[in-house]
Simulated scan of single mutants.
Amino acid sequence: MKEALVIIPALNEERSVGNVVRSILSSCPMVDVIVISDGSTDQTAIVAREAGAKVVELPVNLGIGGAMQTGYLYAWRAGYHYAIQIDADGQHDPADLPKLLDEMGRGDADMIVGSRYVERTAYRSSASRRVGMVMLATLIRMAVGYPIKDTTSGYRIVNHKTIELFSRFYPHDYPEVEVLVLLHRHRLRIREVAVEMKERQAGRSSITMMRSAYYMFKVSLAILLEVMRGKEARREGKS
């Protein structure tokens, strides 16, 4: 079984993806890197390939969930033991990769989330984002029964069992939070490890104010429905 695959979903990230790939291969040369160019119309695929990554070019934009599931399906079929998600915009620091791999090697988690909030880091967010994070963390604690502080972090490592699950099903629109509930439903273990995060190197976020409002509504509804299903299942088990 191969060791680890870094999956980078990318939409029109030609200005940053090359530096991200080179930094990953420099910080952690034992991993393979695949960039999922999610319907990009710029030179993302060419730049990523020249930097040393394998590239899958999706003919249309599937969104972050579809791009990541493509990467997990590749990882499953290729037999990787671990898969790591890293953003193409340079916010995730590849210097933390060896630590995440070491932590996963302990065998006490099926997913490890690279967290901005389990320890004090240099990361600073806006007041509105902090409010949203507190709301989501509260809902997630209701759903899974224990705290996960950085519910929206896209810097994650999963083991072979989780790769197989994600290759079959992965939430599509804004999957980071919903995935936590999915893993809990399948009785898989989640843990957080402190990492540093930076400002994006280039471009701008696709998450507008309207999309943020839609995100909060959709994800909150999905979590609340999961909490209700869990309560109903417990009631049925007692009867």
Rank of each mutant, 00 (worst) to 15 (best):
K2Y: 07
A4P: 00
L5P: 00
I8K: 00
L11I: 10
L11F: 09
E13Y: 03
E13V: 01
E14R: 11
V17W: 02
N19D: 15
N19C: 07
V21Y: 00
R22M: 09
S23V: 05
S23I: 06
I24W: 03
L25Y: 03
P29V: 10
V33R: 02
V33W: 00
I34Y: 01
I34Q: 04
V35W: 01
V35D: 04
I36L: 10
S37F: 05
Q43T: 04
A48I: 03
R49V: 07
E50K: 15
G52Y: 08
G52S: 13
G52I: 13
V56G: 09
L58A: 04
L58D: 07
N61A: 11
L62N: 07
G63W: 05
I64T: 07
G65D: 07
A67P: 09
Q69V: 11
Y74I: 09
W76Y: 12
W76H: 14
A78C: 06
G79P: 07
Y80C: 11
A83Q: 08
I86P: 01
D87W: 04
P94N: 10
A95H: 07
A95C: 09
P98K: 11
L101T: 11
M104K: 01
G105T: 10
R106E: 14
A109K: 01
M111S: 01
G114M: 03
S115F: 00
V118D: 05
A122T: 10
A122W: 05
Y123F: 12
Y123A: 11
S126F: 02
R130F: 06
M133C: 08
M133T: 10
V134P: 00
M135T: 12
M135D: 09
L136A: 13
T138Y: 12
M142E: 14
M142N: 13
M142D: 14
A143E: 03
Y146I: 04
P147H: 02
I148C: 03
G154C: 07
G154T: 08
G154V: 06
I157L: 06
H160F: 10
K161S: 13
T162K: 05
E164K: 15
E164N: 12
R168D: 11
H172G: 00
Y174T: 05
V177N: 00
V179I: 13
L182D: 06
H184Q: 14
H184D: 11
H184V: 03
R189A: 02
R189Y: 00
V193R: 15
V195A: 05
E196R: 13
E196F: 04
E196V: 08
A202I: 01
A202L: 02
R204I: 04
S206M: 09
M209D: 15
M210T: 14
R211K: 15
S212H: 14
V219E: 06
S220L: 10
L221D: 12
E226S: 14
M228W: 13
G230P: 09
R234T: 09
E236N: 15
E236C: 14
G237M: 14
